[in-house]
Design a protein around this nucleic acid. Structure first.
Lengths: 249, 249
DNA sequence: TCCGCATTACCACTGGGTGGGAGAACCAAT
DNA sequence: ATTGGTTCTCCCACCCAGTGGTAATGCGGA
């Protein structure tokens, strides 16, 4: 910007967005100094930007002085088409699946080299999963992840393997070769499994939601307790994914 | 900002946010010139700001050159606590209600002088409603709106009536006096009805979700076809709202 | 090919942005 | 009550990032 900048080359906008970036799932509410520290901005600057956002409705202030994301941002975020169109198309199918199984149902899309959960239906009875709406999952260790990865081309596969296949449990696939083999199977069957590769005690089936051009729009998955249940659920998930694809295109 | 500003007094941040504001439910995707026109900014300026947002991930570009809200904004918006906490608390109850009734279930919060829909469950069988997630509803002509209004104090009531009670159908309450009487009844029964006041052919029951301090956190409502069904549904809605309040506090 | 509109690129000019620092406010410990 | 530390709020001299007119380029349709 202008003035006595410490770090020239930074635009105002970038700073403003950096303020927003300080908030995440682990830090939904922050004080002024926390925002300043996490964003690397001087306190004065952070304060001015926060107030600007506050006047607009993007940030709100709690009684204890901490700030948190406001409804204005939520409203605008809800316009993101990946989630808008897909969600509308997927929800009825997800409810059907949920009614039939009472297990966790999740809908994810690709974001970078991770799977982003855009919708989730769960009950208190289902397996507790770490995932929340807006949360991210690794592509190599989850059913939904593999369903996306299998239909996303060589390029993504490379960047994922190069980034390293992090081991989450003893069952996680950490060798690129074994992952490639698993993905080939997914392509053939159009269904992806994950057996306690992400969390011990949780298994999952997932199916890709494919666009007319063959690209993956999303992946629909169920997380359940027992391995046995999966074979019974797989056809249901595949059918639901096909149904969603029909509406989403 | 700096430079040959046409409208001094405008901050960069305000312009950046004005760009975001050009997107809404009716205009989820816009071209550069549309953004410039709707925001009142020169094309050059709009372009620079758009690119700044794009680099960050807040906007994305379609093949046809149009821009739309990106997943980055959605992810951050998902952190808004009003929707995060409430949604998590409400979803199980909403599913229960949906399973039992197969009608539209909606969860709304107060935003300004309107009700903002933060979650909705519907099926193809249910009454088609205009509402979508992220959409706004008038406070005086809907069940959820009245449930919120009834427990929100005199101040809000004044601003709503002063803004004018817009007539949506012949059944809409447009006289402040009659509205006040209706709200008193809501306060007594803790349940709000709306009989074709918003849309002909659609009736609704709603109940407020009250915080420990007595303030309304949200309103839970069902939209159905027939007036007869409402009396049957009212206790269920009230119970569910109480259940949600227990978790949300 | 020509015309009209949307998008991209450039750049001289300047006012909005910057951040250090001073003071207020708050809290906990002494 | 006093001290010391931390966080928040406010101010303002300095100046560089932001601005937007203009021109070039791209893209269809007539």
């Amino acid at each position: 910007m202008a003035g006595r900048t410490n770090t020239p080359g930074q635009t105002v906008s970038r700073r403003l967005l950096a303020v927003l970036d300080t908030f995440d799932v682990a830090h939904p509410a922050l004080t002024l100094t926390e925002v300043a520290t996490r964003s690397g901005l001087p306190v004065s600057t952070a304060r001015r930007l926060i107030n600007e956002l506050r006047a607009w409705g993007g940030l709100e202030r709690l009684d204890d002085g901490r700030y948190h994301i406001g409804m204005r941002l939520w409203t605008i975020g809800a316009l993101a088409p990946q989630q808008r169109g897909l969600r509308a198309a997927a929800l009825p199918y997800m409810h059907d699946l949920f009614q039939a199984t009472q297990e966790n149902i999740q809908l994810t899309v690709l974001e970078g080299t991770q799977a982003l959960c855009i919708e989730k239906i769960s009950s208190t009875k289902a397996v507790p999963t770490l995932t929340h709406i807006g949360g991210r999952l690794p592509l190599h260790a989850t059913g939904v992840g593999k369903a996306i990865l299998a239909f996303s081309g060589e390029e993504l596969f490379s960047s994922v393997t190069e980034a390293g296949l992090a081991r989450m449990t003893p069952h996680t696939i950490t060798q690129p070769g074994r992952l490639a083999a698993a993905l080939a199977e997914v392509r053939a069957s159009r269904v992806a499994y994950a057996y306690e590769e992400m969390t011990l005690g949780a298994v999952s089936v997932a199916a890709p939601v494919l666009g007319l051009d063959g690209r993956v729009l999303a992946a629909l998955g169920i997380v359940a307790h027992s391995r046995a249940a999966l074979d019974r659920l797989a056809p249901a998930v595949r059918t639901a994914a096909l149904g969603i694809a029909r509406w989403a295109n």
